[in-house]
Amino acid sequence: MQKGDVLFCQNQTTSGLYRVVSGCVTLQRTGLGGDTLTLHRAVSGGLFAEASVFSETYHCDAICTEAGSVIKIAKADVKATMQSNPAFCEGFTRLLAVQVQQYRAHIELLAIPSAKERILAAVQAGYFDATVTELATRINLSHEACYRALRGLCDDGRMIRVGRGKYTLS
């Protein structure tokens, strides 16, 4: 896949889930105002579109944000393996349970009203592993608000700018 390739779109009929072999894929949804929200970021070794196994349509867009490759696993194969292999079924269920916990923690992060405090929490949670713009979409801030908050955090001495678009905690 090349950067910008679309694997599937919201409301498209589901056909399976995916594993990232290399590169990066983000699951995104565009709001009514045109803003993009990143729902999930899958990197090498990660899965995405797990809910497609039990859904008729995809609930978001999957966009390649870093060139690489993915493996598609047909939902019929996943369901058949779940029925015939209890260990696989338990492992898949555990994976989904961990994701529920992660999404609940993400909701808590998004509930932080201060942009500065939300960014600090996101950095501590390991969210800042790409661009400032991508961080902004992951934590539901405009990229302008994200840059302003980062500048404010640097001015406050809580973060240090170490390069263009690169920051670290003080």
Score class of each variant (00 low, 15 high):
153 L>P: 09
7 L>S: 03
96 L>K: 03
20 V>D: 02
128 F>L: 10
88 F>Q: 02
148 R>N: 14
76 A>I: 05
114 S>W: 03
60 C>D: 09
91 G>E: 04
156 D>G: 02
103 Y>L: 13
153 L>I: 07
107 I>D: 15
85 N>S: 11
35 D>M: 04
5 D>H: 11
59 H>K: 08
141 L>D: 03
11 N>D: 14
128 F>R: 04
107 I>H: 13
138 R>Q: 12
147 Y>A: 09
65 T>D: 05
168 T>V: 15
24 C>H: 06
48 F>C: 06
118 R>W: 05
2 Q>Y: 03
63 I>T: 12
53 V>D: 07
92 F>L: 15
23 G>R: 04
150 L>P: 06
7 L>T: 02
67 A>R: 04
88 F>V: 02
104 R>Y: 12
60 C>L: 02
57 T>Y: 12
148 R>D: 14
22 S>R: 06
116 K>D: 14
64 C>T: 03
43 V>C: 11
82 M>S: 08
116 K>R: 14
78 V>A: 03
86 P>D: 10
167 Y>C: 06
108 E>K: 09
64 C>Q: 02
48 F>T: 01
67 A>M: 00
51 A>Y: 06
157 G>W: 01
147 Y>H: 11
3 K>S: 11
25 V>R: 00
54 F>C: 10
123 V>C: 09
42 A>C: 01
49 A>W: 06
133 T>F: 07
135 L>M: 08
69 S>T: 15
61 D>K: 06
40 H>W: 14
26 T>M: 04
90 E>R: 13
58 Y>C: 08
129 D>C: 08
118 R>D: 01
153 L>F: 06
170 S>E: 11
64 C>R: 00
156 D>M: 07
77 D>L: 08
34 G>K: 00
49 A>I: 06
13 T>M: 05
148 R>C: 09
161 R>F: 00
116 K>Y: 00
39 L>T: 05
1 M>I: 07
126 G>E: 02
34 G>W: 01
26 T>S: 09
64 C>I: 11
152 G>L: 13
152 G>Y: 13
159 M>E: 05
154 C>F: 08
100 V>T: 12
